[in-house]
């Protein structure tokens, strides 16, 4: 069989080195997804702020201070709250629980949702029925109420918040993954794997799962901001992080709200941090979806 010159040249050309490919991919992402790039930059900044909060802070974020409700100035860049705590330092430290909760929740919910979605979608029948109906029941509860009940049951704290939000998001992710598996399991490559004698587990994990990766990346990036908001919501309602712990939800909570009209910076800075981080993850998520979702390939929607 004759092979075209072009194909020969193509196959003879050495593949570029991995870092170079990444760099090219990155540049392409920057060129094609400016909003996603902005989101990524903001996320990187928040991550750096969280990691290096000990060095960037101007005072102990939990210590009661002498300057009470002072507006933004050279000493307190974001002003202080009613307890005399420096808001700049609290906003920096507040990024920690938000990112921790976001990443941990997405990790747990993604793992749980993927496993359950794979099982339900691949095997179908009674397994699908059991998992899907359980998910339906859980999704039927208002998410915040469900989170409140779980957080109240486990007691306040980061661990409780992560567990509560993970439980809320797992069935949602399961449904998305299940629908992906239902599409993939009838494809030719799955049939081919079965024909050569691959086990069910191998088919699921080695063949279907890699094809779901773009979908999972998109799901993760859109779940993360929702998890951050849920954490802030639970903390705002008193069922999240312990009292006084630096957190954007705590800093927007009932105590601060009593003074919002006297000291608007109490609402502005933690609110901005929260909004900006959620926006950044959403923008990044949208861009990743545009780049990675196979359903958008060739649809003209990627550009």
């Amino acid at each position: 069989m004759a092979t075209s010159v072009i194909d020969e040249q193509f196959y003879q050309r050495p593949a570029p080195a991995l870092p170079r490919r990444w760099a090219r991919g990155g540049l392409r992402f920057v060129r094609r997804q400016p909003l996603g790039t902005f989101g990524l930059l903001v996320i990187v900044l928040f991550t750096l702020a969280a990691v290096f909060a000990d060095y960037l802070r101007t005072s102990d974020p939990k210590a009661f201070g002498d300057d009470i409700l002072t507006g933004p100035n050279w000493t307190h860049w974001f002003g202080t709250n009613r307890d005399g705590q420096d808001l700049w330092s609290r906003v920096l430290y507040g990024a920690r629980p938000s990112l921790k909760v976001g990443l941990a929740t997405v990790g747990i919910a993604l793992a749980g949702g993927t496993i359950l979605g794979l099982l339900a979608g691949y095997f179908g029948g009674p397994i699908d029925m059991l998992i899907s109906r359980a998910a339906d029941i859980m999704v039927a509860f208002p998410a915040l109420l469900f989170g409140l009940v779980v957080a109240a049951w486990l007691g306040p704290g980061l661990r409780s918040v992560i567990i509560a939000i993970s439980i809320v998001f797992t069935p949602i992710i399961m449904r998305i993954v299940r629908s992906g598996v239902l599409q993939e399991r009838n494809r030719a490559y799955v049939e081919a794997a079965r024909v050569v004698g691959a086990s069910e587990a191998r088919v699921m994990l080695r063949h279907i799962l890699p094809n779901l990766l773009p979908l999972l990346i998109v799901v993760a990036s859109t779940t993360l901001p929702a998890a951050i908001l849920a954490e802030s919501g639970l903390t705002f309602l008193g069922a999240g992080l312990p009292l006084g712990e630096p957190s954007w939800g705590n800093d927007l909570g009932p105590k601060a709200r009593t003074y919002f009209d006297l000291a608007p910076w109490l609402a502005i800075f933690p609110g901005l941090a929260l909004s900006l981080s959620v926006l950044a993850f959403n923008l990044l998520g949208d861009s990743l979806r545009d780049e990675l979702d196979p359903r958008l390939r060739g649809s003209g929607l990627r550009e």
């Binding site: 939990k62 307890d83 008193g238 009292l243 006084g244 009932p254 105590k255 009593t258």
Partner: peptide, 17 residues
């Protein structure tokens, strides 16, 4: 403590710190 009486919550927080 409880937040329904804010003074209780703030005092508790102060002492705890």
């Amino acid at each position: 403590t409880m937040q329904a009486i804010p003074l209780f919550a703030t005092s508790t927080q102060f002492i705890a710190e």
